[in-house]
């Protein structure tokens, strides 16, 4: 059977089982459209949004996800913080960086960077984020030509620069922001919560499965 007729076969059986007819199809379509338009949220755990509480929660939850966290006052201070972290980890001051961050003064911080997508040999990947979710300590990365997805994936160390002003309470606000600012979802939206891990051998959690072993967050506290 061709895929087109198989589509009709499967949908036809679903329709038959649902007792679909012209009258209830109209009502059904209306229900579907209403649901899509409503974008209704489910129950939400309370997240304190007062002053610096969001950023505090984001940091606390990120630490719980085994990320490490630093903070700097301004975006301009981020390269030095990154260099400091790498030195502390005995890692060379070299990294692949999102093209969107290539304009920072990396050389001034003693770093050698390449602005591109990551390859297997890259040890350190530096990204920004679209926004971050305080509820769970999660980064939201939206793929784009100047924000390639591989940079947060292939290197063993992932460093993300997180403007405090982009920390939102929950995933709902993150999606709302994406709808408002991007119009439609980019090809790859990745929510990242700490280093990759597996518990597949004896349910023992090991960090560094296929993705990064380390996730280091540099929170930029200054208002934009």
């Amino acid at each position: 059977m061709s895929s087109g007729s198989r589509r009709e076969d499967i949908l036809g059986r679903v329709r038959a089982r649902l007792g679909r007819d012209a009258a209830n199809a109209a009502a059904g379509r209306a229900a579907v459209e209403a649901t899509l338009a409503a974008q209704a949220q489910g129950p939400r755990p309370a997240v304190d949004t007062q002053d610096s509480a969001l950023a505090r929660r984001f940091v606390e939850k990120s630490l719980a996800q085994s990320s490490s966290v630093d903070s700097v006052a301004t975006l301009a201070a981020a390269p030095a913080a990154v260099a400091r972290y790498l030195a502390g980890q005995n890692l060379p001051p070299q990294a692949v960086v999102w093209p969107s961050l290539a304009g920072l003064d990396w050389a001034g911080a003693g770093m050698t960077i390449e602005a591109r997508g990551a390859v297997d040999a890259d040890l350190v990947g530096i990204t920004g984020c679209f926004c971050a979710v305080a509820e769970t300590g999660t980064l939201m990365l939206c793929g784009a030509p100047d924000a390639p997805a591989t940079v947060s994936l292939l290197p063993e160390t992932h460093i993300a620069i997180v403007p405090a002003s982009r920390i939102v309470p929950g995933m709902e606000e993150a999606f709302a922001l994406a709808r408002a600012e991007l119009g439609r979802l980019p090809r790859a939206v990745n929510f990242i919560s700490g280093p990759s891990r597996t518990g597949d051998i004896e349910q023992t959690i090991v960090l560094g499965a296929h993705g990064p072993y380390r996730v280091h967050l540099v929170v930029v506290t200054a208002e934009e």
């Binding site: 996800q65 300590g137 030509p145 990745n190 919560s193």
Partner: peptide
Amino acid sequence: TGQSISNYVSVLTGTKGPDDHDG
């Protein structure tokens, strides 16, 4: 698994764009 959130939640839409590095 008793995690607050899994490490990666990917929402994937469509194919690689003309200027995209990956996908």
